[in-house]
Design a protein around this nucleic acid. Sequence first.
DNA 1: GAGAATCGTTACAACGTTGTACCTTGAACT
DNA 2: AGTTCAAGGTACAACGTTGTAACGATTCTC
Lengths: 336, 336
Amino acid sequence: MVATLKDVAARAGVSVKTVSNVVNGYSFVTEDNRRRVQEAIDLLGYVPNIGARNLRKGRTGFLTLAVPELANPYFAELCGLVMNAAAEHDWTVLIEQTGGVRERELTVINAAHRSLVDAIILSPIGLQPTDLAEAAPGTPLVLLGERALSAPVHHVAIDNVAAASAATRHLLDLGHRRIAALGDQPGPHGTAALRLRGYQSALQAAGLSVDPALIVPAAAYSRAEGTAAMRRLLSLADPPDAVFCFNDMLAVGALSAARDRGLRVPEDVAVVGFDGVDEGNYSAPRLTTIAPDKAAIAEAAVGLVRAALQDGAGQPQDVVTPFTLITRESTRSFAH
Amino acid sequence: MVATLKDVAARAGVSVKTVSNVVNGYSFVTEDNRRRVQEAIDLLGYVPNIGARNLRKGRTGFLTLAVPELANPYFAELCGLVMNAAAEHDWTVLIEQTGGVRERELTVINAAHRSLVDAIILSPIGLQPTDLAEAAPGTPLVLLGERALSAPVHHVAIDNVAAASAATRHLLDLGHRRIAALGDQPGPHGTAALRLRGYQSALQAAGLSVDPALIVPAAAYSRAEGTAAMRRLLSLADPPDAVFCFNDMLAVGALSAARDRGLRVPEDVAVVGFDGVDEGNYSAPRLTTIAPDKAAIAEAAVGLVRAALQDGAGQPQDVVTPFTLITRESTRSFAH
DNA sequence: GAGAATCGTTACAACGTTGTACCTTGAACT
DNA sequence: AGTTCAAGGTACAACGTTGTAACGATTCTC
């Protein structure tokens, strides 16, 4: 059905290898042959069989990019950027959704499509440090946004502690004293733990104590969870005057909950998010947020993959990418 | 480096084919051999080479899903659902971004990774009806959300005209008379044309004339374009009292523009969106929208692929999936 | 003008897998 | 005892591609 090199060769009256040489731009082919082969290719609509090529060459031209969920715009945006960065080096990206479930993350790093991809980029959530021993040897692995694992693996991330601290300090600078942290999650190794640490250190640096009642968990980093968690905060006897949300989805949900209670943001309660998604620039009020340089993360991840494939297994790199605090209406107009 | 069937066979003391039989659960293998092979597999960490298997079997287990942009949550949500639906039938989805550019859509349908995928699901934007002649023969093609092409290709979509008409009628029922359409795009075959037709027919059915000044274009279906277009509308000498946006991103942008002008939604101007993305449930005010049943679209698309691969090239199917009008605050509290 | 160097092309093997055909073994029938 | 039969296993070829080695043809060198 589909044309192969053999078909093209037969039509052009040359050997299979000569066609292959034309396709790959190799070595020396007479102008005459090159033209005849090209005509045959166009005529038959020949397209190389990538699987066969991979089989022969060893390199596949594919990368796995595993994220918790595409429905989260942070990851959707990130996927798009990684795809672009990868395309610059002729890689195609195979996106997987893990749902943040440890078991599926394990599948990604130790087996799934191993023979089909040159490397794996994973944004882990449920993964435990010891799990990395299961990683497929020989396939470079780059972890995104997760530093606490601190295992000998390539990492790309912002400084989560510093970023969370900056967000909290921003609220402190505006005069807020009863600042909540929304989005805590179990486990000492997750992103939540790092952001919580940054939050706590900023409070302590300001001479404030940390009130456990103001640290609320979120089962998932979704808008719905943000709303639910914010409702709990607003129902406290002594509710917060500001909330640092561990991601923008939670923050959007929190804004919605505040609005439902008839509270003004930022006058009654200020809100800071984390992720810098486009959506936050259109919420009401517009969302102050920590914006990681997503393009830099994508570039760095692909760069690490390239380096790992060239040099073999060198020292695991730890790339720290920049972030900025974008102040918008959800905190800005507060006057103390 | 990576273990192959041969390595496993050597270790287990059986032939390569017997190992293959164990891996695939085929035919008759003694319990003893099966156990020994399994042990060798576990020990060596054997994983089948998918490329080689594809080469041998013809079927690849991959689908291409090409969407304009992952950053648009409608497509991000849709991708997630298609991936889930595909996973039920052991397919892995290869996501491509076309940017809505005709040339890249053409690449998708006629060449890219053709040999690597069993079928192609495309959400077209720039594609012209005649372009479908370029589609790779032998690889089933399913188009999403696009009916006007009306070529002999599988289609899955809601009834865009009816949906747009329902949205407009909703505004009419609420008493609005000066209703704008936001998001027009050139070309007689695009989604925009269908939604515009539905808008017009609803107006005419109500005995109203269509004011061309109230039909504003949008270069892209993004929040930023929605804001820009809404500004133009609000600057008219005789501005609209309601706006039907051709997608939710435009609507979110429009809400932002209205807010910047100090207008109340829906009291001063009502807004309806299209896509039913989660974000619209958290905007201020919450967005009334046409919500296509995205899960149904995903299921239908994968179902069509399955049918096409089983029956060969049968009659192209035209699947119409349901939608609902979700009324929320951006229109609801209007009293006329 | 004989040998060497270069260009252009080709046959062959191999990548890892599975379908086909065949072989072996033992048991169940006449 | 001879025949049939099925289960269990194997060897081989093939999928489409490219690297290697080798070959024929031309040109260059002294």
